[in-house]
Amino acid sequence: MDTVLGEFLRSRRARLTPAAAGLTDYGDRRRVPGLRREELAQLAGVSVGYYTRLEQGLNHNASESVLDALAAALRLDADERAHLHTLARPRPKAGRRRGPEHLQPHLRSLVSTVNLPALILGRHTHVLAWNPLAHTLLADHLDFHAPEDPATRPNWARLFFLDPRVREVFGDWADKAEDTVADLRQIAGRDRGDPGLARLVGELTRCSPEFAALWSGHPVRGCASHTREYRHPRVGSLVLADDLLTLPDTDGQRLVLFHAEPGSASAAALALLSGTARHAGEVLAI
């Protein structure tokens, strides 16, 4: 039974009060906050039995119109609405086991020549490549060549939650943590049943109470662009924007670029960091 859809629906019922949903006759005594199943079913125009089966993972044939009605009743935003539709699709049958990811040669060259901190994340947030400046900015305590070998390849979500050195880099760690989990939730919705992803989530849930708490809330949000404070021991504080660009024909790989406002103190600090970066050579084949 695929229970992820039910978990998502329950999380969104719990956060929406009857008053916020537009209900006026809901009584004063409630065992738990949020909407009851029958209240959500009423708002969405479906039977309680139908909605209950959907939440329990026993109904895999919800129509687009029913899902849209549930999304409207739950006040879902665009990312959450898309996630709901993804989760409601039948779980794909297990296929051929995926091997390690590889990077196309032209993308490898792109990362090595970009004059900004740049890295490429794989479908499950493994670091497939980084240039010296990204390595120096984010994780220069790790071997620069670690992404070349699938056995030593860093995973960004694992680094972020389990590596104290990486944690220290982020001035707004809690905000970045929620974004990281929200991004991983979207990935998990698209790639349900992947054993490697399940192992990653299991490890993070066991080893990081912060991850476990965020994961249980089922945050869902696109992570295309942010502006954050970074703290580096060599150059101090930097405010950098980052942009995540999905790469075509790569099964979900993304290019991440970091940049500062031109002429700012952060731009000067980034230039200084570039001059001290460990020039470990080209990003090698993966």
Rank of each mutant, 00 (worst) to 15 (best):
P117W: 05
D2P: 12
A118R: 02
L67W: 03
W130T: 11
L76K: 04
L70W: 05
L273S: 01
Y230Q: 08
V4Y: 00
F161K: 06
E210C: 14
A157Y: 09
L40P: 00
T113D: 11
A41Y: 01
K93Y: 15
F144D: 03
R153V: 13
A271P: 00
F8D: 00
V66D: 06
L137Q: 05
L133I: 13
D191K: 04
A267R: 08
R37H: 07
T180H: 05
L5W: 01
L272N: 12
G281P: 05
D183C: 11
L110G: 10
R31L: 12
L107V: 06
R199D: 14
A88S: 15
L103Q: 02
H106D: 14
G27K: 14
H135L: 10
N61Y: 01
G57D: 07
D175E: 13
A69I: 05
L162S: 06
A94V: 10
Y230D: 08
L204I: 06
A212C: 06
R234L: 13
A20G: 03
D2Q: 05
P92D: 10
R13M: 13
A268L: 13
G122D: 01
V256Y: 00
G49Y: 00
R123C: 09
D28F: 10
R221Q: 15
V32P: 00
L121D: 04
H226P: 01
N131A: 12
N115C: 08
L119F: 11
T205C: 08
A174F: 02
L184P: 02
S109I: 08
L128P: 03
A134H: 09
A19H: 11
L121W: 01
L184H: 09
R36E: 14
A146W: 02
P233T: 13
F161W: 08
P92K: 11
T17C: 09
H106C: 09
I120Q: 10
H126K: 01
R228T: 07
A78D: 13
Q104G: 10
A151W: 04
E229S: 11
L159E: 06
H218R: 14
T250A: 08
R221I: 09
R206A: 14
F144S: 07
G27A: 15
R53D: 10
Q186Y: 00
A213H: 11
P262F: 12
L137M: 07
T17Q: 12
H106V: 12
I120E: 01
L9D: 06
A71D: 06
K93E: 15
P164V: 07
G22P: 06
L76W: 06
V46C: 13
E39Q: 04
P117S: 14
G49T: 13
L67G: 00
G202D: 12
G263D: 04
A277W: 01
P100I: 13
W215P: 02
R278K: 12
T86W: 03
G281S: 09
A280N: 11
G217Q: 13
H232M: 04
N59R: 15
L74V: 03
Y50P: 00
T276Q: 14
G45I: 03
A198I: 02
G275S: 05
K93P: 15
A44L: 09
